[in-house]
Design a binder for these strands. Structure first.
Lengths: 349, 349
DNA sequence: CTGAAAGCGCTAACAC
DNA sequence: GTGTTAGCGCTTTCAG
């Protein structure tokens, strides 16, 4: 070792070609301090004398220095990066959550990476590998991560994880969500109280929606408001207005007597509503409609839609906070949290 | 130097505390090759013998090794990270673009960071600093980046930039968009051809929307289909169905004779449509409505909405490709690209 | 409160 | 083809 280094002292040093970027060293030199002191001035200003703080800040100002967080992350083992996984971006009910996530994280100096897993779950493994490769300080999953390999890897990586929009008996790590089963049952009871006696459902082909509808159907049947068995129609995810329209027609053909439909999303519900109007079916007199998600426009269209509201902002906010607490070594008080849901009654019931 | 190193050879070596993560070295050791060879096997498999490739892959398999891209990015000066900036996520017309971006990038091993600049532009500077700190291989801007400081920094950073959804005479770097002026004028001509003689507009308070409407108004006035000056109503961004409803009432009060309204988004147009139906105004007979954005539901509601479609997927796709080409040192053939727009005529005109 | 040294985990550059 | 060496730009550790 020593020999080699003597060698080095003699041979001319090689430099990496591109090396012209502005670094902490340049700033430190300008401020007449050691690099580490400049680093402290930027990261823990309270640990540095007022005078040095001024000098470093001036140097940063003068040079337009922007720290390299790749390097910082590598050295500190904290990337200040958080990955969020959604099934798909467009038409997603998770948008509000993603927005809250981004905002809350940004406010504390974290950045969000967004990945799409796809509804089929085909890209989950590859996506997760790409995520882990960045060494994020946390991963937030909206919806289910099906792949067991992916789940195992996540656990093995030791990265804090928050699963959201669901409650499962065995979460990977932390959890902020609500019970889709309770939700489905609550809608059945709600419709029963409103005097409906022949309920049906239209559901997107996605795991959580299906669980909501199973619970809805079970409750409806035990309340005897299903006319025997609940008529159910499955449409492909992601759900659209068009599938709602189609769904109403299918359901009506199969069970003309239905007087209420629970839809797995507001989009579907809007389709049902629109088709009902086109067909001259009075809403809510002859047919009640309940959506899910409480989109902004659901309140503003005619008639305003009764729907189930989930506080996506609260979920995102909480998830972000959980991750940051973990990243900063603090304990998370209530790592499994049920945020519940609300049935927002408007004029379609 | 040599002295110091002799010193070091005597003193016991300090190790960083946490150091238990699985690294390329471990994989290399297992495969009985040098770290750089393992690196090559993973990154440029064609540069390595078949036998070594097998051994390295086996070692990766056995250990579950996931490369650390923070380290890789730092060493290679290529982060394989691309930042996308949107004004806001929820209710954004850019979602389709973001989706395409994510997909196209992921397919080539890039990841997307998403940032929200806010419509007010208040967070732009901070956001941009956070972005540059990650040393992304590219930045994609949807909508305008107002802050000149931010723009200057972006240029200074040397990071490839694609601005989208607009055409400006002096882009920061690359550009994929369309002319809002042409669009506004095209809608005026379209309405004129459809026999409208007294057009008005409702526009969100956002820079591009305002430019569309200015062009619309100018064209309408010169075509003499404005009843003098175009009645115009401004609503706050982001636009909602509620502002559309309100807009129609305001406009009707101010100019009862109007027979067509150009809205700055489909959401607003939907609100106008809904309010018109509530008011008993026949659409399109007495009032024509044109939206902008072609949301999925615009086609499926009753009556289907006439709107202006922009291919957000094409924009996202193209932008992603441009960035990757630059990152890989290839030239971009047509770095300023107009993707145009289409007026989709449906039943509200 | 400030600094010197030693890496974080990887790859570019240069040998052989 | 494969290996050696020297960093990438930062922060941790240890020492004053």
């Amino acid at each position: 070792m020593a020999e080699h280094d003597i060698d080095k002292a003699v041979a001319p040093k090689r430099r990496r070609s591109k090396g012209t970027s502005l670094t902490l060293r340049d700033v430190a030199r300008l401020a007449n301090v050691a690099p580490i002191t400049a680093s402290r001035a930027l990261n823990t200003p309270e640990a540095v004398s007022e005078e040095i703080l001024q000098r470093v800040r001036a140097a940063v100002e003068r040079t337009g220095y922007v720290p390299n967080l790749l390097a910082g992350g590598l050295a500190s083992r904290r990337s200040r990066l958080v990955a969020a996984v959604v099934p798909t971006i467009t038409g997603s009910v998770f948008l509000e959550t993603v927005q809250a996530l981004t905002d809350t994280l940004a406010a504390s100096g974290y950045q969000m990476m967004l990945g799409q897993a796809g509804y089929a779950g085909s890209r989950e493994d590859a996506l997760l590998e790409a995520i882990i490769a960045r060494r994020p300080d946390g991963v937030i999953l909206t919806g289910i991560m099906h792949s067991t390999l992916a789940r195992r890897r996540l656990v093995a990586s030791g990265i804090p994880v928050v699963e959201t929009w669901d409650l499962t008996p065995n979460p990977v790590d932390m959890l902020v969500g609500f019970s889709h089963e309770q939700l489905g049952a609550a809608v059945a009871h709600f419709l029963q109280r409103r005097g409906r006696r022949h309920v049906a459902s239209i559901t997107a082909d996605d795991e959580r929606a299906i669980r909501r509808h199973a619970a809805f159907a079970a409750a409806a049947e035990s309340l005897d408001i299903a006319g025997g068995a609940v008529a159910q129609h499955v449409v492909p995810a992601p759900s659209t207005v068009a599938s709602g329209r189609e769904g109403l027609r299918v359901l009506l053909a199969r069970a003309p007597g239905i007087d209420a439909i629970f839809c797995s999303s507001d989009m579907v519900a809007l389709g049902v509503l629109s088709e009902a109007q086109a067909l001259g079916i009075a809403v809510p007199e002859r047919l009640a409609i309940v959506g899910m998600g409480d989109l902004a426009l659901s309140r503003d269209l005619q008639p305003p839609l009764t729907t189930v509201r989930v506080d996506g902002t609260l979920i995102g906010d909480t998830a972000a906070r959980y991750i940051m607490q973990r990243a900063e070594g603090r304990a998370v008080e209530q790592p499994i949290r049920d945020v519940g849901f609300t049935i927002v009654e408007r004029r379609t019931t």
